[in-house]
């Protein structure tokens, strides 16, 4: 069951990154250096290539290996950022999360690692503008977990449109970064949706 879930998650995430490569690239060309789409796809292609080794592992070990794969293959700042997210979640998931609260605790470790790695937080037009609201929605314990997570991801993504970038290459643009969605927030929202879809389908 778990192996199949991981295998499906890898396949779905990779497929999603491939399908949205162009979109992420265009978002990144507007405010960054235009490599986010290809970087993410290269990272997930590498994870998919190791799917047979990753899927049978415990969730914690699988997340750590997937994270390390992103770190070593992506080649942009998103490698260490997504890599730290997964690796820290993996370290926290020594016992498998069984409910919303325990999953939120694991996810929280990952989000903290992204904050540390990026020296950033919500409001700076980054992936954290999706990840932090999703975490808060899960911690709030109201509504259906999958539904609130999706909604938080979508709203968080949209919130980046009118933000001024203060981190990463987009910060060089200052005011001109306003009016564009953040590519890292977009890829984070896509991945939140992948996980939500899979959880929903497995229920």
């Amino acid at each position: 069951m778990k192996t199949e879930f991981l295998r499906a998650a890898i396949a779905r995430a990779t497929e999603t990154m491939r399908a949205h490569n162009q979109e992420l690239t265009e978002l990144d060309q507007a405010i960054g250096d235009g490599d986010h789409g290809t970087n993410m796809q290269r990272g997930f292609d590498a994870i998919e290539a190791s799917a047979d080794e990753i899927s049978p592992l415990d969730l914690g070990a699988a997340l750590q290996k997937a994270g390390m794969t992103l770190v070593t293959t992506v080649g942009g700042a998103s490698g260490p950022l997504y890599g730290s997210l997964l690796m820290s979640m993996g370290k926290a998931a020594s016992s498998e999360p069984t409910d919303r609260a325990s999953f939120a605790a694991v996810f929280s470790e990952g989000v903290d690692a992204v904050k540390r790695r990026g020296k950033s937080d919500v409001g700076a037009k980054t992936m954290l503008d999706v990840l932090v609201p999703v975490l808060q929605a899960l911690q709030d314990d109201g509504g259906d977990a999958v539904a609130v997570a999706r909604q938080a991801a979508d709203e968080g993504l949209e919130s980046t449109r009118n933000m001024l970038a203060t981190k990463g290459r987009a910060s060089f643009l200052g005011e001109r970064s306003v009016g564009h969605l953040d590519p890292g927030a977009r890829s984070s929202a896509l991945l939140v949706h992948v996980v939500c879809d899979l959880i929903e389908e497995s229920q």
């Binding site: 490599d35 970087n39 070593t72 992506v74 080649g75 942009g76």
Partner: peptide, 13 residues
């Protein structure tokens, strides 16, 4: 210098 695929970027390893 260069990402793991040889393009612009950097490579942790």
């Amino acid at each position: 210098g260069g990402n793991p695929a040889g393009g612009l970027g950097t490579d942790v390893m």
